[in-house]
Amino acid sequence: MINNIETYLYIAVFLFAIGLYGVLARRSLIAVLISVELMLNAAMINFMAFNRFLAPHPAVGQICALFIMAVAAAEAAIGLSIIVAIYRKMKTINVEHATELRG
């Protein structure tokens, strides 16, 4: 049950769906950021699963996963700094207050 590729692919799709739902439904920017990280992790699980069960070369998927981790860390840093900046200006991190641009 555990030791086949389908299980991992289903987990990844499930995680991705949770993340997407979070991005669309949550109003707090921190929660949105966490949801984005979930989606990245889903992709990472995919890479590892394909690497474990299918790939002829055992390292490629792992390298991808490592790169994604580093990139996700950079993304979190930028996201958090922008959230801090928005909090300083608006005193809130709720996306519903960001509605000045229209058209």
């Binding site: 991005v23 920017l29 996201g79 928005i86 608006m90 996306v95 960001a98 000045e100 641009l101």
Partner: peptide, 13 residues
């Protein structure tokens, strides 16, 4: 104004 930061947040996410 706050316009820039709003654009930044939208663009980022």
């Amino acid at each position: 104004d706050d316009m820039d930061i709003e654009a930044g947040v939208k663009y980022l996410f």
